[in-house]
Design a protein around this nucleic acid. Structure first.
Lengths: 196, 196
DNA sequence: TGCAAAATAGTACGACCGTTCGTATAATTC
DNA sequence: GAATTATACGAACGGTCGTACTATTTTGCA
């Protein structure tokens, strides 16, 4: 990895941190560069525009999500255990110290849900990947005999997503200590209703 | 209502609209005033600071929520019917044309979940009111014999909140046509699991 | 109708925004 | 070691931000 790529990583690392607190719009090149001890123009040259910076920051966050949540879930046994692993790693992800302001993907989704463009497109695309993973995992659970055959896997994916958004809200906005407990209970109820 | 109060209402009306798209930080006095045909300073004089403007915009949104969701639910029969009415009006609320960028309360919650201050405090407070309403309605449903006596009403409130956040995401971010259907199915499952 | 008060406009400000440009230094290649 | 490219810097740009002050218009009441 050349010097440029190394710096770029350092920048994105800090940018993810900042954007998780202030949003991708709230992220500014001036603040970011001064926190890193770089000049504005030097940092800017790495990306060419703020739009491009925002996109790369978001991509960096999504890559981390797949590393920290999807991959460990794939390592778990097929069927219900994999879905449990997904949920646990996802809940842990929300507390990722690299994103002190909470999951950047959630923040960006609310921030850009009404602003057409590459950022929104990428958000939808990255959701589709998560969504497909859940649907596929649920289908495998059906095949394995863990879940009932007539389970609506689309609905299941919606429900999984909802509990995580609920957790994000309760945990970050309300600082509710029972947030995780409530999320787990909701998920357990979903599993129970999905079984044979 | 004097002229000043009338103008203030007009301002807040448009400000809610703008902020629902761009967030409370993205809302700017320059854009807002020019869209209303007012001068920047003239508009500014109504609020004294941007912080105060943001707070009043948020308060206006919360008041509307209580008018459009809580009050109609209170008009419905006690117990499960009231909870159903709450859900239906809440789902409709998310499509409120006065907030073309989606529910401002959700947007502000994600935007300010890590920024201490009056705005965050108000968000927590306004959540508490919604939360208490759900808990109370669930308790009434228990008393009415609709729900089982050992139902965890805190958990129930979490679950209701989660399905609405899931709907907000699926509807606004993914433009999923089945969003409402999924939200309703999730809620129906919750009701079924809550009954005697 | 006249007049104080309220409401709005006008002007200016320093700060910061994203961006461009020319230049200097560091790294890499020949 | 020289030539070339990659990387970073500093200064400056036009704009917009929120805010402060002053002037002007409009309103409501005596």
């Amino acid at each position: 990895m050349g010097k440029g790529a190394e710096t770029r990583e350092r920048i994105l690392d800090q940018a993810v941190r900042l954007a998780s607190r202030d949003g991708l719009e709230g992220l500014t090149i001036g603040t970011l560069s001064s926190e890193l001890g770089l000049s504005k123009s030097g940092l800017f040259a790495h990306f060419g525009s703020k739009d491009e910076l925002q996109l790369q920051v978001l991509q960096a966050a999504v890559e981390r999500f797949e590393q920290n949540v999807i991959r460990p879930a794939l390592a778990a046994p097929r069927g219900e255990p994999r879905l449990r692993a997904l949920m646990e790693h996802w809940l842990t992800w929300e507390d990722n110290p690299d994103m002190p302001g909470g999951c950047l993907i959630v923040a960006a989704s609310v921030e850009f849900d009404d602003r057409p463009g590459p950022l929104r497109d990428y958000l939808v695309h990255s959701h589709q990947r998560r969504y497909d993973f859940i649907v596929k995992a649920a289908r495998i659970a059906i095949e394995a005999g863990h879940f009932r055959p007539d389970l609506d896997t689309d609905q299941f994916a919606f429900d999984v997503n909802a509990v995580l958004l609920g957790y994000h809200y309760a945990h970050r906005m309300l600082r509710d200590r029972k947030a995780r407990e409530h999320a787990r209970a909701n998920f357990e109820r979903l599993l129970a209703d999905s079984r044979i």
